[in-house]
Amino acid sequence: MQNVVIKTDKLTKKFGDFTATDAITFEVYEGEIFGFLGANGAGKTTAMRMLCGLSTPTSGEATIAGFDIYKDTEKIKANIGYMSQKFSLYEDLTVIENIRFFGGVYGLSDQEIKEKSDHLIDLLGLKEESKKLVGSLPLGWKQKLAFSVAIIHDPKIVFLDEPTGGVDPVTRRQFWDLIYEASNRGITIFVTTHYMDEAEYCNRISMMVDGEMKALDTPTNLKKTYNAASMDEVFFELARGAKRQAD
């Protein structure tokens, strides 16, 4: 049996009358790539923000890396990485300055920061650009850098909120190489995406519809269950019942 790193029980978030996330219950195992799918407005980002300790749930329970989502938010934060939908490195700092800053605030030693930044710049092929402002880099490079910074402290889990939105197919492929590399190092990946080819790369997939979790299984089993040829069809089959208007 694999170790459970994320465990939720009827996790719910309401904004007034609106239930953004409705009693979702699931488990994520250590080292897996967990795909978190759903139409726009299905409640994915809300759920993810709760798991990261950015948003307090209305009701329900959850533990992240063994820490309680209500009481231990600060301990959770030391054990996770997060990459939001919005690009969120400092555009007015250089590549190397961003790496150093986030390494520093995660408590890495000077020696570790130096090793990490050398390694990252090498890995991402940013040697020429390391002293350039991040704002001047193309989007695909920024996203790869943001991912690398999000896992600079070797967290147990990394949460990726639509990390490849607006990125070309080649860069997306390279981005997934980075994800696999992180996964091989034992980091659990929790990723939302709208690209069904990316969904196929995941070990297991969950499907959110109108704030509820409608399905959770491996891509192969899902296709079998819904008698579909591709993940696209599975998505349409499930999302068709959605009452909420996509934005």
Partner: peptide, 14 residues
């Protein structure tokens, strides 16, 4: 506005 505060808020910065 630019969203970097989210990134700060998921770090253990006090």
């Amino acid at each position: 506005e630019i969203g970097t505060i989210e990134q700060i808020n998921v770090t253990p910065i006090k």
